[in-house]
């Protein structure tokens, strides 16, 4: 009974938050709506990392590649198969999930360095693969056109607001599902496995299968985020998914606190804010082309190290440190 009311409370909370986002989306300009869509997309991608790393203890550097898989699946569904964009996003989720499942059978059972290195290899090699198959469109990639917002929303419903609605709604629904999953039997099993694998096995948890499950779900979430990303930039190409994207997601996850889904939006905000901050720094002090291009990467990495060193369990840790 208690559990039921907790689930209900969470649903209400998410609906309330969604309504709040809706109100905010009505009151800000197009740039903010566009940035808000990116926050939602990054938040979803970071949530997929938190599920994998924070809850099941596996470290992946290949989420940029998993996002790319979802992105290509989504783009091909709209561009070549002429499916509805929403269906394309669902396809993106499932294709990336399936890819994660297959990969998961191979590597997800492996621990520590093996999974990290293998996913790194994936992230480095997948974009260059995309160049070699004509159907994937080479460097130009494949277009993803989400289409104009439905006419019933009225004349002044802008494209950016439409982006914002789709991204926020997709992220909200997905994260709500994951939050429910994590407060269920699965969530407890994940945590048990992360904290003590042997003890988890003793209680009858099939850790091998559970790791594959976590990897699959995480891949599906990343695929949806990838689909959203190419919707926002209206097309998918290999260069949209560099290795540094994986690092950014990891930074977002560590900054939010990798062991809790609660503050996950903070990570999305940080990832959207960093290029802005870098821009304003460059505007103020100037700098060479190399400085301008690498400053965001520098900030992301510095933040990653700082977060690991000083607040590995999230910013909440800094606040209650006094005890």
């Amino acid at each position: 009974m208690h559990n039921f009311s907790a689930t209900k409370k969470r649903l209400l909370l998410f609906i309330l938050f969604g309504w709040l986002l809706l109100l905010v989306g009505d009151r800000v300009g197009e740039l903010r709506q566009y940035q808000g869509s990116f926050v939602a997309m990054y938040t979803l991608a970071i949530a997929s990392i938190i599920l994998l790393t924070g809850y099941s203890g596996q470290l992946s550097l290949g989420h940029s590649a998993l996002m790319a898989v979802g992105a290509y699946a989504g783009a091909l569904s709209t561009n070549n198969a002429h499916l509805h964009p929403v269906i394309a996003l669902i396809i993106a989720t499932f294709v990336a999930g399936l890819f994660g499942l297959i990969l998961g059978f191979g590597v997800a059972r492996l621990s520590g360095p093996y999974l990290a290195g293998t996913t790194l290899a994936l992230a480095v090699s997948l974009p260059s693969l995309a160049n070699q198959f004509p159907i994937l469109g080479g460097e130009q990639g494949v277009a993803f056109d989400v289409g104009a917002p439905p006419a019933r929303f009225g004349e002044d419903f802008s494209q950016y607001k439409w982006f914002f609605w789709i991204s926020s709604l997709a992220a909200l629904i997905m994260i709500w599902l994951i939050a429910n999953l994590l407060s269920s039997k699965y969530g407890r099993s994940f945590r048990a496995m992360r904290d003590n694998q042997v003890a988890a096995q003793l209680t009858g948890i099939n850790t091998g299968r559970l790791k594959v499950t976590a990897f699959t779900i995480s891949a599906g979430m990343a695929g949806l985020a990838g689909g959203l990303l190419v919707m926002l930039i209206s097309g998918v190409s290999p260069s949209a998914f560099p290795l540094s994207l994986s690092f950014s997601l990891l930074t977002g996850a560590v900054v939010t606190g990798v062991y809790s889904l609660k503050g996950v939006m903070l990570g999305g905000l940080v990832l959207v804010a960093i290029p802005e901050i870098a821009d304003s720094v460059v505007n103020r002090i100037g700098g060479s082309e190399g400085f301008t291009a690498t400053l965001p990467g520098f900030l992301v990495s510095a933040l990653l190290i700082a977060a690991v060193l000083f607040a590995p369990n999230g910013p909440g840790q800094l606040l209650k440190k006094k005890h």
Binding site: T53, G57, L59, L61, G112, P113, A116, R194, D195, S244, F247, L250, T251, V254, V258, Y259, S288, G290, F291, A293, T294, L295, G297, F298, V300, S301, A302, L304, I305, V308, L309, P312, N313
Partner: peptide
Amino acid sequence: GPIVMIAPVVATLGLLGIVQAIIGF
């Protein structure tokens, strides 16, 4: 804490990013 498992690896990744950025500068 469980962070012990991933902190060193994550730190080397951060370092990789920093070094490559410094080279870019």
